[in-house]
Design a protein around this nucleic acid. Structure first.
Lengths: 209, 209
DNA sequence: TAGATTGTTAATCGATTAACAATC
DNA sequence: TAGATTGTTAATCGATTAACAATC
């Protein structure tokens, strides 16, 4: 998959830099070196420099980076200025949690509606987000130009929900269901694989006796 | 970090194989080939074979794998038979969602208690899990031999909660807070980086015009 | 036996790291 | 100027893939 000169791994680290820099911005020092960032985040110095060089030319020898400029460049590169509208499909426990999480706006994500097939849930908005019947999903996406679908449905129905989202013109899908999804060329499937994380935890404990 | 001959990436794929095989087990065919698994999961054939070879010797030329044997070997390797007790710290939206998610038991994870500093939450169990005051955290972990800590607290307090967990003898931490945590040698920090996923989604959309 | 499928050894690819050059 | 720090070019490392050998 092409990401325009920036590797997926680099791209995945950029939000970490950004959030670290933001946590710093109250502090008085206007500048920071790549070495300092690396130390704070437990990364290699050269890696940090290479990552940042791909995104910003605000670095000055001897001085380092101006924190505010670097924040601006990272936000611009990540597209956090422009909001992407999203729909959430599947208002179970996890879906509810994501709906009521207020931090997504900061990442340019705007959840405009949620969908569920359970009639009992429909009509009562969660934190201001309306919950609509599942059969309105494709029309809603088309009408509102929704670009992102968040899938928090059971594994068994994830693929069919994915298909419906694609029908509706959605071009990126954040999949929390523990299954592999198939979608046409041009539609990004980003899987949040919690089982994978759990495996790493569990294996570490097993190995450590 | 050592994982005993199996790379982190391989290890991360094993739960995917396992869950796919389980979804298959109702079907009548007792055998499956690595090629079929690869096709279903969108992976390379050789990669699947290599991953499975690290975990099982149930593969037979011409026949493939006996699904039930492969499931057994994967579960054994991942340690899903032995339950690991865990505590959850921070009963906000995400914490609540994880508490009420019933699927973790399948992965050998047993959340035995949750902790919060908010008095209003304490005392009322969520789905059978008691919520206790934060100051009892280290003692509880020691007394109950808790091995895993799940951190769903705000970024600002994540490091200090992490330290408390380590004090309590916890040896693996699943961190949902958007910060880098520092812990002593031997304590695994597994970060669930949602911001990273969002960056990939957002960047894909930006690139696709 | 022939062929399908596994498992392994060697080649490729991509990301990280190390060494160096550039510059404020 | 000297030194700190950036940015880049080359070397290393690890994972994936391709080619092959083994075997039921």
């Amino acid at each position: 998959m092409e990401t325009g000169g920036v590797s997926k791994l680099t791209l995945g680290r950029l939000p970490t830099y950004l959030s670290y820099l933001k946590s710093l911005s109250e502090d008085s020092l206007p500048n920071i070196s790549a070495a300092a960032i690396a130390a704070a985040l437990g990364l290699g110095e050269v890696q940090v420099r290479k990552d940042l060089a791909a995104v910003s030319d605000a670095g000055k020898p001897k001085v380092g980076y101006l924190v505010s400029d670097l924040i601006r460049d990272l936000e611009h590169f990540l597209g956090y200025g422009t909001q992407n509208s999203a729909v959430l499909v599947g208002v179970g426990n996890l879906g509810l949690a994501l709906l009521s999480y207020t931090g997504f706006a900061e990442y340019g994500l705007d959840i405009v509606a949620a969908f569920d097939k359970n009639q009992a849930l429909i009509g009562t908005p969660v934190d201001g987000t309306p919950i609509l019947p599942a059969d309105q999903l494709p029309d809603f996406c088309r009408t509102h130009g929704v670009q992102i679908g968040i899938l928090t449905v059971p594994a068994e129905v994830a693929q069919s929900c994915c298909d419906t989202l694609v029908q509706g013109g959605v071009r990126a899908i954040w999949n929390f269901a523990p299954v592999h999804l198939v979608a046409p060329e041009g539609v990004l499937i980003q899987r949040e694989n919690m089982a994978s994380s759990l495996a790493l935890l569990s294996y570490h404990l097993k190995g450590a006796k």
